[in-house]
Write a protein that binds this DNA or RNA. Structure first.
Length: 778
DNA sequence: ATCCTGATTTTTTTT
DNA sequence: AAATCAGGAT
């Protein structure tokens, strides 16, 4: 090693690592399992290992595939490796599974009968397509939602079961119906030159299984493969890794060859106690059985925690001990006992929010920074009430998750236009934009065009380009469609794609178009999209225009950072299809952060609030129904271990769900924490709720007891009925304030007590029930 | 083809 | 409480 020109750097790299960390970093070839407890310096180990591999010449940057769970994690890791190496990490494949697969598939698309311009459908698109397929099969959509059907298909794909394989295993009428839909859904996806999220993994596996030469190329390209958050991998991802490195378990599957050869240089990092994505096919067995899959695997346990106080760790350890069959670990910390964990019960979710915000105010007064504080909850819907309280106290905050930028209708429309330009077979995008803005092409005309395209076996683009040939199309529709396609044709030239029915794969055909930012700008004006929004003259439309301007900006930024000449549109589309909202989180901006516990994974904050700790909320009732209590407990474990110094756990006696009030018992997880770790006002220990939790009274009984304490306070939905102005008392143009949306002005008064309010904050215009909405005169 | 109204649903978590 | 959707009116 002393001969290494980087010897100095190497020593620096290993300094300050503890023994197991160093072992993981310096491990050479062969399988490696790093069991990294929460806060044990996992990212540090990963980044140092990447740098180490390069410094010791075990791999060039371009020979490393490093998989992370989110794009944000990839970006952060890339930054840190760059800092360690003192130079660029260019060439390194540091990205999510989905991004890596999309990249491979674009390069090899022709092998699978796709063009490299294939479209990636997100969940909403996939559901829409599922609905279409279900309609075609004649499914009663009253009984089965497209979401439920698509979930089933998605689960099948995650287990690498194609439609035909799925059909062989059906065991109920429901599954038989799904099998029918799956058939059509698959056929249509392929016809449209499109893939859903699950296909990215599935098709890559197909590719590597079908073409040994392709597989060999990638096996030799990636001399080292690293995977973060390994406990959250699903079967498709497992198989993909197997194909990329060789080895792994000999799947007893039917048909195809299962065991493969390779270098087996696979390093995985994970924590079985933090496996929380079972609902999307993650299989905790992947990490539990890693040592069976790779008998000679080196196993390193990271148990020293550098994040939290011992009190917080003891609580986490105690809770997770209630799960069975995990890998034994014991987190410890040198940071001292620290404060007790604060447990509070509040009357309802509003009181809970006020308590949380009050504490935040106090902490900030005492010198804490807002960005050192995060509020966690189980479901996105719970953010509203907390936001409301924060707004009232004028505390700046950010919400991670919820409605995402790329899911807004106008953004999806713009992206759909781009997709259609790149992929003339993209029926979902065509359907989305053909009458947006309104062009007089309705459902009937659309169906005729689609049917015609299908009958001829040509792309929608081609069918729509000759509207006069579509049977049954009216004169008006022919004219409208003709005008629309003429515009699209022009845009297509701008995009640099060959005119007419392109889709022609091959080469970098579409390389000399205008920059993406310019293209978006051109498309929004030439299609009349912006004009139509302007004509609406509402603040809401104004907001949409601003969002679109932001998208144009995103396009320009992309153009500035991308190499010239390389099918920029395709790369741009691929990139935006795979961004998650978690990627937009910003640090150090003086903002309190609100997010779901899932989104909080991988983060840490000095102060953490976990809200809604009631049975039915957290653990979630649906999880309980599905027997997923252990996963919920792991989720709670994740929540608790985000905290560095202060941890608050709150629950409410009463909480509004849909319209009515519900009464929840305190979460069973609270009772799994040793009481000496808790700072919980004595009084609450003897509340009816707490007692009934212990003796197992039913929810209804406990509600009745609570009701007795304050007679008449809550019979039915009366609780929320405060004195409010009647609808008629709001007048046009009046200034109002809404608890969540802030200041606004009444722009309409409608029958039925409905008022229309335009809000200053985000420019949105909303219809509110004056009687029930938390809105009052300013 | 488009608009309006009433009914239904929404709340798991996300690449 | 609010968004989405389907069916019917225009």
């Amino acid at each position: 090693m002393s001969a290494n020109p980087h010897a100095e750097h190497l020593q620096e790299l290993l300094e300050g690592l503890n023994e197991p960390q160093r072992e993981a970093v310096t491990h050479g070839e062969g399988p490696l399992l790093i069991l990294a407890g929460a806060g044990s310096g996992k990212t540090r180990v990963l980044t140092h290992r990447l740098a180490y591999l390069i410094y010791t010449d075990q791999a060039q940057a371009g020979e490393i595939l490093a998989i992370t769970f989110t794009n944000k994690a990839a970006r952060e890791m890339s930054e840190r490796v760059k800092r360690l190496l003192g130079r660029d990490t260019r060439g390194m494949w540091l990205m999510t599974f989905h991004a890596a697969c999309a990249r491979i598939l674009r390069a090899e698309a022709a092998r699978l009968g796709y063009t490299r311009q294939f479209t990636i459908y997100d969940q909403a698109d996939s559901r829409r397509l599922t609905k279409r397929s279900a309609d075609a099969v004649g499914v009663d959509l009253k009984r089965f939602t497209p979401a439920a059907i698509h979930n089933q298909i998605s689960a099948a794909k995650n287990r690498l079961r194609a439609a035909a394989d799925y059909r062989e295993t059906v065991a109920s009428p429901f599954e038989e119906m799904v099998a029918d839909v799956y058939d059509i859904y698959e056929r249509d996806l392929h016809r449209m030159n499109a893939m859903d999220f699950d296909d990215l993994l599935f098709r890559t596996v197909n590719l590597l299984e079908l073409f040994e030469d392709v597989r060999e190329r990638y096996v030799s390209t990636f001399r080292h493969v690293l995977v973060d958050e390994y406990q959250d991998t699903n079967h498709a991802q497992y198989r993909l890794l197997q194909l990329l490195v060789g080895g792994g378990r000999e799947a007893p599957a039917r048909g195809a060859r299962t065991s493969v050869t390779g270098h087996r240089n696979l390093a995985v990092v994970g924590d079985d106690s933090q496996s929380v994505y079972g609902f999307r096919g993650a299989d905790i067995k992947n990490i539990l059985e890693f040592q069976d899959d790779f008998k000679d695997a080196r196993v390193v346990k990271l148990e020293q925690n550098y994040r939290s106080t011992q009190t917080i760790l003891s609580a986490a350890n105690a809770v997770i001990a209630n799960n069975r069959g995990g890998i034994a670990k014991r987190l410890w910390s040198e940071l001292g006992q620290g404060d007790q964990i604060h447990v509070r019960v509040l009357e309802d979710e509003h009181a809970e929010a006020r308590f949380v915000v009050g504490e935040i105010e106090r902490l900030v007064d005492e010198g804490a920074s807002r960005d050192e504080i995060a509020v966690l909850y189980r479901t996105n819907a719970m953010s509203r009430v907390i936001e409301d309280a924060l707004v009232r106290k004028e505390i700046a905050y950010q919400v991670i998750g919820g409605t995402k930028f790329y899911e807004r209708a106008e953004i999806k429309d713009a992206i759909a236009y781009l997709s259609l330009l790149a992929n003339p077979f993209d029926v979902v995008s065509f359907t989305r934009v053909v009458n947006s803005p309104r062009r007089g092409i309705g459902q009937t005309s659309l169906s005729r065009v689609l049917a015609h395209a299908e009958a001829l076996g040509v792309s929608v683009w081609e069918a729509a380009s000759r509207p006069e040939e579509v049977p049954g199309l009216g004169a008006a529709a022919i004219k409208a469609l003709g005008r629309f396609m003429a515009t699209m044709e022009e845009l297509r030239k701008l995009a640099g794609a060959p005119p007419g029915d392109g889709g022609e794969e091959e080469g970098e055909a579409s390389s000399n178009g205008v920059p993406v930012g310019d293209l978006i700008e051109a498309l929004l004006t030439q299609t009349g999209y912006i004009e139509a929004l302007k004509a609406e003259r509402t603040i809401e439309a104004q907001g949409r225009i601003e969002n679109l301007q932001e998208l144009i900006e995103v396009g320009h930024e992309f153009d500035a950072g991308v190499a010239e000449g390389q099918d920029t549109l395709g790369v741009f589309l691929q990139q935006v299809a795979l961004v998650a909202d978690a990627d937009t989180r910003t640090d150090d901006e003086g903002l309190v952060t609100l997010m779901t516990v899932h989104n909080a994974k991988g983060t840490e904050y000095p102060t953490i609030f976990v809200t809604g700790l009631e049975d039915g909320v957290f653990p979630h009732s649906r999880a309980l129904e599905e027997g997923a209590l252990e996963e919920e407990r792991r989720l709670f474990y994740v929540a608790v271990t985000r905290a560095m110094r202060e941890l608050y756990l709150t629950h409410a006696r009463r909480r509004a769900a849909f319209g009515a009030q519900t009464y929840g018992l305190r979460s069973r997880f609270l009772d799994e924490i040793p009481s000496d770790l808790l700072d919980e006002p004595q009084e609450t220990m003897f509340r009816p709720g707490a007692i009934s939790a212990r003796v197992g009274l039913s929810r209804a009984a406990s509600a009745a007891e609570l009701g007795d304490r304050e007679p008449g306070a809550w019979s039915g939905r009366a609780a929320g009925t405060r004195e409010r102005p009647a609808a008629s008392s709001f007048r046009l143009g009046e200034d109002v304030i809404h608890a969540a949306f802030g200041d606004g002005v009444v722009t309409g008064v409608e029958p039925g007590g409905v008022i229309v309010v335009r809000f200053a904050d985000d420019g949105s215009e909303r219809k509110l029930m004056a009687e029930y909405a938390p809105v009052s005169r300013r």
